[in-house]
Design a protein around this nucleic acid. Structure first.
Lengths: 263, 263
DNA sequence: CGCGGAATTGAAAATACTCAAAATTAGTGG
DNA sequence: CCACTAATTTTGAGTATTTTCAATTCCGCG
């Protein structure tokens, strides 16, 4: 986690993480963004989307393993993921990390920093990604003029609270097997909401990240995936996952069914 | 948890949970409330506190074990705790609960319901308590007129996210001993912030509730408390706790120190 | 072709859980 | 106010799930 060094120069070099002029020119705004049904502009009228567009800052591209922000950075912007995937994690006094979430296109990053005016987790790209920078001060101004925007923002923050309460439920009283089922079913639903296949998708994160997020070790994740595979619940090829029995997985996620390790 | 029936008629009868006329008359508003430095009106000017006062609904008293709201209830109000203590918990498909937080005077309840317009956890009084009902629709109106209020509200929601991320860290990668240390140190800090002793306070919740919150069993909590007691870290009498070695407890909470069970 | 990170698998160990019983405390009714 | 009953807490013994440690294997990439 903390030891993950940015592997620059894979597809993008360090310079790419700053704004690319040609993209600025091509910038089409929220209305044209495929995520505007999920993201901050959701439900806004065209005129209001326009106003939102005007305050949105530059786009930022991040190479895999590059940090969008780090704990301790002062808070100025929220970020909307345009494409790619991120993880956010907190590091405790002993230097161990806990991943608190995985974010994908349409998700908003940085809301936890509003309270203290300072980020207290790291946000790192899991693959080459792009975000919209949303200067929070400007957004606050706009809230006064676009009530629908404010209301949606509150819904987003509230949903973030709900998401984390669900994570507490998972970490607090589910067995390993159920945790992984919940994880897979969740990912499935999130891809479905974005128009992708609910049964076939790529995990963007390492087994270690999954384990960390679910409060388990990498070995446990590996063993569980093997078990799920042997039971015909999933098909796994590297990070490509196919859910072969979504119904059973959902039942396991709900806790109404379980699977024993085979003899 | 789910089986806890409201034990009415202890100090207050069922009728007390509705508004008591004499209290309405005596109602002095936020400015006079001892919690206004921590609660929603924090940092507001007198004139704005006045405006906030005008939208605040009735006060509600709750007897021990009485529910302020239940999962599924439609969301209309936020609640500010005036005195007493609450727990919020979510129930999963299998009927098991996970306590997601303990709230005390000055805390705001219900923010997680804004997103869906519906509560998805139960909030239950741990002792006889009182809350201010804050109609959210009115609060939203006021946001447009009192920017400082909106800003503080955002800080509160954001802090709620932060709190839950810390809970994830706790549940995801701390051992039992460290979890309990964090719990005690947290309580200590929260009482200190309210002007009470940081070293001596009453736990308002059962061992079962503590265990549930920390992702441990009641037996583990009991054993850990015994161990802490034998090591001279705390003194425990029923639910009365005295922190005898706060420094050591803080070190344990931070993960820089640990204590083995004695031979 | 070989290096290195990531993932898998196995065996042993540890932490926390379950089950059970006893002790203590709180609540209820006489 | 006391006694009885129910609920909560404590403690013990045995167990289970998950971790830890270790050894391979797999794969991408130079």
């Amino acid at each position: 986690m903390g030891r993950a060094r940015a592997r620059l120069g894979a597809l993008y070099n360090a310079g790419m993480s700053t704004t690319i002029p040609i993209l600025q020119t091509l910038k089409a705004g929220c209305a044209a963004c495929s995520m505007h049904q999920l993201c901050l502009p959701m439900g806004l009228e065209d005129a209001d989307i326009e106003r939102l567009d005007r305050i949105i800052g530059r786009r930022r591209r991040l190479a895999r393993d590059e940090a969008l922000y780090k704990a301790g950075d002062s808070f100025r912007n929220l970020y909307a993921v345009r494409f790619g995937h991120f993880k956010t994690y907190q590091v405790n006094a002993a230097g161990e990390a806990q991943i608190t979430g995985f974010q994908m296109a349409g998700d908003l990053l940085g809301m936890d920093a509003i309270g203290a005016g300072r980020h207290h987790c790291d946000a790192v790209a899991l693959e080459d990604s792009e975000v919209c920078e949303i200067p929070f001060a400007n957004l606050e101004e706009l809230f006064g003029q676009v009530p629908a925007l404010l209301r949606h923002f509150h819904r987003l923050m509230s949903s973030e609270i709900t998401r984390e309460q669900n994570a507490m439920l998972l970490l607090g009283n589910m067995r390993a097997e159920q945790r992984l089922a919940v994880f897979l079913v969740n990912k499935s639903a999130r891809y479905a909401a974005r128009g992708y296949s609910p049964t076939q998708f790529a995990l963007r994160m390492s087994r270690e990240d999954i384990g960390n997020y679910l409060g388990l070790t990498i070995e446990s994740i590996s063993r569980l995936l093997s078990r799920f595979r042997k039971l015909g619940l999933v098909q796994v090829d590297k990070r490509e996952v196919t859910l072969l029995d979504p119904a059973r997985l959902k039942a396991m996620a709900a806790g109404t069914e379980q699977c024993k390790p085979m003899a």
